[in-house]
Design a protein around this nucleic acid. Sequence first.
DNA 1: TATAACTGTAATCATATTCATTTCAGTTCA
DNA 2: TGAACTGAAATGAATATGATTACAGTTATA
Lengths: 148, 148
Amino acid sequence: MNSEFTLAVHSLTYLALHPGWMATSNAIAESTAVHPVRVRKVLGLLRKQGYIAAKEGCAGGFILQVDPGELDLHDIYKITSKGTLLPKCSSANPDCVVGANMKTTLTTIFGNAEKQLETFLAGYSIKDVALMVRQHPSKQITEIVTGF
Amino acid sequence: MNSEFTLAVHSLTYLALHPGWMATSNAIAESTAVHPVRVRKVLGLLRKQGYIAAKEGCAGGFILQVDPGELDLHDIYKITSKGTLLPKCSSANPDCVVGANMKTTLTTIFGNAEKQLETFLAGYSIKDVALMVRQHPSKQITEIVTGF
DNA sequence: TATAACTGTAATCATATTCATTTCAGTTCA
DNA sequence: TGAACTGAAATGAATATGATTACAGTTATA
C-alpha cells in the first residue's frame, strides 16, 4: 500500500487518540516522521471529504470531524490509493491478440480484485485501528487522553 | 499490479496460445512492447520455478512446461509481486504510541488483505486468461494455433 | 493592532525506482 | 564455423516519490 494511505491512516488514528485537541501538522509530522508540508497536503484531502477540520492561524491545526467508528479504511483508500491494484501494462502490440487484449483482460480481473479489497478494508474503522495500536505491547503510553 | 506481473502473465499467455512452439524473447518482446532483455530476465524467474523451459542457442527460446489450466495467477504473483500490498511506512516515531505501533498494525491488516487477494488470484489460471484474451472482440486472429 | 503560530500551496531539489540499452560470454543448430 | 539464441552484468535515461524552501493568508492573544 502506498505511503499516502499509511500517512492518512496514521494521522487519523493520531487524531482519534487525541479527541478534542487541535493537532498541528508539526505534531503529526513528529509522530509519522514525514515532513509537515506533506502532512498538510495529505490532510488537505481528508479535509475536502469532511473527515477532519483544519483551522488556520494561531492555535490552529487539525481535528477529527467524524466518529472514528464510522470512518473506515475503504474511505481512505478511495482518496489516496484508488486504482493501485490495476495492472500497469500501457501499450502492448495492438497487432497481436495477446498484446491487443491483455490490458482489458487484466483490468477486468484486477478490477474485481480491487472491489474485493475495498470490501475488506471497509471492515476496519479508524477506531479499530486505534484500538489495535493501543493494544500492541511495544508502547503503552497511558497519559494519552482517549475518547473510547 | 506491478509490470513484472503483467509481463509474466502476458508472456505465459502468449506461450499458452502458441503450444509446441519455441518463442524467442524477441517475439515476446514484440507482443509485450518491452525490451527483450527484460523479457529474458522475467522469464528466467518462471524458468526457475519450472513453469517454462528455456533453450539456448540457435532455434532456442521459451516454451510452456505445465498445463495452462494448472498454472494460476497466484503462482505468478508469488514470484513477481509478493508483498505488494504491504504498507510502506518505514520508520515512524518510536516514542509515540501511534508511531511505534502503526506499522505492525497495518502490516497485520494488509497481510490478511494479501492472503485474500492471493486466494482470489488462485481462481484464475493462465488458460482462463488465454480464453478471456481470445474472447475479447477487438482482435480475433484465428490463425493462431491453440491447444484448447 | 502587532506578533507569533498556524494552514495552503507552489516550486525546486534530492533520492529511489523502474526500464531500456549495451555488451559480452556461453550454447546450440545447421 | 557462423548465425541465432539465452544469461547476466553494467550503465544510463526516465519517472516517481518525498523533502525542503518560500511565502501568502488566517487567527488568537498580549
